[in-house]
Amino acid sequence: MLDAQLKRGLIEACILKLLTKGDSYGYQLVREAEEVLSISESTLYPVLRRLETAGALTVYSMEHNGRLRKYYAVTDVGRKKINEFLTEWEDVMKVYDFIRRDQHDA
């Protein structure tokens, strides 16, 4: 089981990355993120809220089949966050490689 805080950071980065491919809505984000890591609508909701508060994405409503659907769009702040994530994790990967090297299954 992934550490809760760690997981939240991963979901945040995933969602922002998905949005760089185009604006999206809740259900689509859950389905696409599911292919990368385990996620549900309740774990997604707080992430979306936090990203919105941080200015990493914006929300707008559009009509779809007679109802209003919320769409999310990534902002420049959001794109910056993706790069920050990648830089941070370069360090993590260095440590990972170090530990992985010459590791025999115990």
Partner: peptide, 28 residues
Amino acid sequence: AVLSYYAEMIDDRIEAGMSEEAAVMAME
């Protein structure tokens, strides 16, 4: 905001072909 988020989740699942009951069951 929370209610409309979950209403949308259910509606999108129904649109994707699930029955109303199954869509609701898919929620936590």
